[in-house]
Write a protein that binds this DNA or RNA. Structure first.
Length: 871
DNA sequence: TCCTGGACTTGGTTCTAATGTT
DNA sequence: AACATTAGAACCAAGTCCAGGA
């Protein structure tokens, strides 16, 4: 509401950090703007089938998938089953066992990683022996991989030897890159300016390594202008390059610092750490030239925008601020939040016992929220209806004509709503555009914040509109009215010297204005459904603040790599501990490590009944002799986790024993909770918590899969490899999605097309035979005479058709393969982007192929990674 | 030590925009 | 140009984990 004219923004710009912002004018322009719209009404929610017990045998899956990881969750039809049953999964654990004996601390070897090359070689098996160790460093998937590619197993070991960081892979990347880049430059002239920018930036991107190196040595001077508070403008004015450089540097520095300060580490640990870091630096080679693997082409447009964006946000990367203890920012300026428009009564009357009813606007509003959900599954759920009725009834009043929900007919409202939707759809492109622009204009001022002098995007600056609560799974509160949030519900957090955002609703005011720089939120309000909880307004993922914590997250996960061996050894030892708590901690840690389970905090009764590791119930785990465990439970978001895994015997025995004398609904780990577990983990590695294992296993899996499986080929082939690796991770993390409604239809259409192609292929073959014998081709399906072609021409056609068929089959396979697997979640949250960026650089795959615009923005901090980076 | 408030990350679905197809 | 599909942004729910106080 309220005008966009508010001058405040401008003011701020001026006053605050002077300049940075500027330049932007154009930036905002496009697209970066959020798109606005609100959620409509209907929706079908998905639901996964709850219930733990019994339940379905879902597909294939399970069977033997002992091999956990690969196998994964049961569901995917994928490979899993077939594989050799049993086998190996084992590998893993056992490894630790044996290794256990070994010296507890690993030498400075740091990462013993299997060089890709070696792996490739893999053929012969080798002495497994010390393999154990190496296995420790590997992702579970590989450890367990019994099935599928077990091939590697034995092999891996030897290889590692060298590597370390040798970084490298002998790969003459640099040379390759060099060539490429040249090419690029030459072509430059022809390209449009925008393209140029693109190129440039790319180059910078990749080229940064060299820079890093230098900077490192050179020291710190640079860093982002802002920090020193000097708002020199330039900051963004200069382009990415500089800024990149500077930021990078900071990063490095910081990392180093950090490393230094872990006093709490044991010596050996420190050694390890040190060595690893040194490796790191070593690895920085000078491949300056490289790069540009990115193909320019059409991507240009996007990129350009991207670039603009990065202009300011480029800041991304580490803020010095972080180092200063708790402080998350020095200055913070923003315009508060925007509210949804007030309710506009439509006047359409619903029926009660067949007769139209008068409703006040408030009553009508809620009735409409309900009416609009007609097509969702929510309205089939008694809980939903019940909760809705309770809240609506309160609004109607005891004596209202409407006395029971069953006699209500919301159809008139539903229909009205459908019509409105239709109208909207029918609007011309221009009209739509106009609407969009109008909205954008109103929101523009709320979209940005200035943090430490740098303009950054705000994430969710729109206050959530009122509606009916849509909890997932069997949420006890589903259907309750989520009331409208008003300014007096909202607390604003802003810099001391910044102007206080004007309350957009006339006559009202904020609940409170704070100036707390130890937190990152810009505003919050209490969740109307659960007043004990809060809804926060944060900066967008592309912001430097978020980027930095993201980076820290991955650094912590990487650190786990140095500790994992010992941790595994330790918990393996404790499987048989006499102390029950210890035993439970050991087993729980094992599950978290091996299966990437979540920690599992306790939940209240007024939340959906889901579990994580620490809250597993007896009924969620079934022991299948001799040593398999079948998991079946509803996890976060009520997504079902179903998996049968082979485990080490001691684990199996321990679980069986935890189940003794308990009811199915009792806690499996009765002497454990997440705080105990995390407290224990923290003793093993500073900062270690349960979720770090998920990040670690996800990222290391991607890293290794990419190393092992990438082969020469074109971009499309590499893309497939990447997706396979990504999929593997998604399976480990149990990231599912519902099969799209049209999936089957799409598949059959594709099948049809495929058949058709095969048909023409056959025809070509006949024609070829005939042509070779000098006979004319047969008539085509319509009875028309085809052209006479030379055998060579026909052969060519056959080749193209074959290619088409192959391509199609591949895409069908992928489609089928990924129909229930969500790749996005792991990309956003679990996979260290540096792995991907480095891989793209090494294999000349344009990063845009893998990361979309928002991921690119989110991961700017990772773009200048060395191509040889290993997680 | 336990409990709870508080802050921030993770996650699947929904809806729109962009792109592909006919 | 109309329609189908896909990509991706937006949404907001649901986790994790920490810190501080009793």
């Amino acid at each position: 509401m309220h005008a966009s004219t508010d001058p405040s923004w401008t003011l701020m710009v001026v006053q605050a950090p002077p300049k940075p912002i500027l330049n932007n004018f154009n930036d905002d322009d496009d697209d970066d703007g959020p798109i606005v719209f609100k959620r409509g009404g209907n929706s079908t929610s998905k639901q996964n089938q709850p219930n733990l017990e019994a339940k379905k045998p879902s597909s294939s899956s399970q069977n033997s998938n002992g091999q956990s990881l690969n196998a994964h969750k049961g569901k995917s039809p994928i490979s899993s089953s077939n594989a050799s049953p049993v086998k190996s999964p084992i590998g893993s654990p056992k490894a630790s066992a044996s290794s256990a004996k070994a010296s507890p601390m690993k030498p400075p070897v740091t990462y013993s990683r299997v060089p890709s090359s070696s792996i490739a070689v893999k053929e012969e098996t080798k002495p497994i022996v010390d393999d154990d160790d190496s296995e420790d460093d590997k992702p579970l998937s590989s450890r367990f991989k019994g099935s599928t590619n077990n091939a590697n197993k034995g092999v891996t070991v030897p290889a590692r030897v060298k590597d370390e960081h040798s970084d490298d892979d002998e790969v003459p990347l640099s040379s390759r890159f060099a060539a490429k880049s040249n090419a690029g430059s030459s072509s430059c002239k022809t390209i449009s300016s925008s393209e140029k920018i693109l190129l440039v930036s790319k180059i910078q991107l990749n080229g940064s390594t060299a820079k890093d190196k230098q900077q490192k040595s050179s020291a710190v001077p640079t860093k982002r202008p802002m920090d020193n508070k000097v708002p020199s403008n330039q900051s963004f004015a200069k382009k990415p390059k500089l800024s990149d450089a500077s930021t990078t540097k900071q990063v490095t520095v910081k990392a180093e610092l950090k490393a230094d300060d872990d006093d709490h580490l044991t010596i050996s640990q420190r050694m390890k750490k040190a060595s690893s870091s040194s490796n790191k630096s070593l690895s920085v080679k000078q491949n300056v030239t490289k790069v540009v693997s990115f193909s320019s082409k059409k991507t240009t447009k996007n990129n350009k925008k991207q670039m603009q964006n990065s202009k300011y946000s480029k800041s991304t990367k580490v803020q010095p601020g972080s180092s200063d203890g708790q402080k998350k920012w020095k200055t913070l300026v923003h315009n508060g939040v925007i509210f949804p428009p007030p309710y506009k009564p439509h006047g359409v009357k619903m029926l009660y016992k067949g007769k139209p009813v008068d409703l006040t606007p408030e009553q009508e509003e809620v009735a409409t929220m309900f009416a609009v959900m007609k097509d969702t599954e929510y309205v089939q759920k008694p809980q939903f209806l019940q909760n809705f009725w309770n809240d609506w009834r309160t609004l109607l009043g005891k004596n209202h004509v409407i006395q029971k929900l069953e006699a209500c007919d919301f159809n008139p409202i539903y229909e009205w709503h459908q019509k409105e939707k239709e109208k909207k759809k029918q609007m011309s492109t221009e009209e739509k555009k106009a609407v969009r622009e109008e909205k954008l204009k109103q929101e523009e001022m709320y979209m940005w914040a200035i943090v430490n002098g740098v303009k950054e995007k705000v994430g969710n600056f729109r206050v959530e509109p009122p509606g009916l609560f849509r909890g997932r799974g069997e949420h006890p509160k589903m259907g309750k009215l989520k009331s409208r949030i008003r300014p007096s519900d909202i607390t604003i957090n802003i810099g001391k010297d910044a102007p206080i955002p004007k309350c957009p609703i006339p006559g009202e005011r904020w609940k409170e204005v704070k100036h707390d720089n130890t937190v990152t939120w810009l505003a919050f309000w209490n969740d109307p459904i659960n007043p004990k909880e809060f809804k926060y307004v944060f900066l967008a993922a592309s912001s430097s603040l978020k980027g930095q914590s993201d980076k820290e997250k991955y650094e912590k996960a990487r650190k786990l790599k140095d500790y994992i061996h010992n941790i595994r050894t330790a918990y393996t030892k404790d499987f048989a501990s006499k102390d029950i708590t210890k035993r439970q901690i050991a087993v729980a840690t094992y599950l978290i490590d091996k299966l990437a389970l979540r920690a599992g905090n306790e939940k209240d009764d007024d939340e959906a009944d889901t579990v994580g590791c620490c809250t597993l119930k007896v009924a969620n785990v079934e022991c299948i002799p001799p040593n398999k465990l079948k998991f079946d439970f509803l996890g976060k978001d009520s997504i079902r986790y179903e998996n049968t895994v082979e485990v080490e015997l001691p684990v199996y025995k321990a679980i069986r024993q935890f189940q003794v004398a308990k009811k199915p609904t009792d806690d499996l780990f009765d002497s454990l909770d997440t705080s105990k577990l995390n407290a224990h983990l923290k003793e093993l590695m500073p900062g270690l918590t349960a979720k770090v294992f998920r990040t670690y296993n996800a990222s290391i899996t991607l890293d290794e899969k990419l190393y092992e499986e990438t082969e020469d080929g074109d971009v499309a082939e590499k893309f497939v490899i990447y997706n396979q690796a990504n999929k593997q991770v998604a399976i480990i993390c149990n990231h599912q999605r519902t099969i799209s409604k049209s999936h089957d239809a799409q598949m059959s259409r594709l099948t049809e097309k495929l058949e058709e192609l095969k048909g023409t292929l056959k025809e070509f073959k006949t024609d070829l035979d005939r042509a070779k014998k000098g006979k004319p081709p047969l008539k085509d399906a319509d009875g028309k005479q085809k052209r006479n072609l030379t055998p060579e021409a026909i052969e060519k056609k056959i080749a193209t058709t074959n290619q088409k068929i192959e391509k199609m089959e591949l895409s069908m396979k992928t489609k089928e393969d990924l129909k229930t697997v969500a790749l996005g979640t792991s990309k956003i949250n679990y996979l260290d982007p540096r792995i991907t960026v480095a891989w793209c650089k090494r294999h000349e795959v344009p990063i845009e192929k893998i990361f979309n615009k928002s991921l690119l923005a989110k991961f700017t901090w990772a773009m200048d990674v060395d191509p040889q980076f290993r997680f």
